[in-house]
Amino acid sequence: MDKLNKKEYQKFSDKKSPKPKYLKNIVMAFLVGGIICAFGQVIINFLKSLGLDEKAVGAGTSIILVFLGAILTGLGVYDKIGKVGGAGAAIPITGFANAIVSPAMEYKREGFIFGVAAKMFTVAGPVLVYGIGSSVIVGLLSLLFRR
């Protein structure tokens, strides 16, 4: 095995490795993501019917979806939704709540400071850093160049 050709072995082992079921995963992502977003629309309609303005409806809908994502994570349900739905469960804002709440739960035993608080962003941290970072850059560019 000392003379193993790494490139050939990589190809060989790729051939031996089972592939994800792309079609099934895509369909399930579409359905799960679609259901979450359709439910978001239900909330929007409901909040509108209460007479809230557009800004308040947007904020209220996000708050409710984040709350539901967090609750379902705490109940041990969201990881199962994520397993079936893949990106369909990860991309909506409920998935973001799951990414924050799951490490917070996981590290509770290491204490509230070095555990929950410090580890809360291990999964979602990169999204926040680059999301907020790029929004700042876009904001500055728009301030400088918008006429």
Partner: peptide, 17 residues
Amino acid sequence: ERQFRFPLEYGNQRKMT
């Protein structure tokens, strides 16, 4: 899982391998 991969309640998909 927590040392090498993700928190247990995180909703990711495991690879087939």
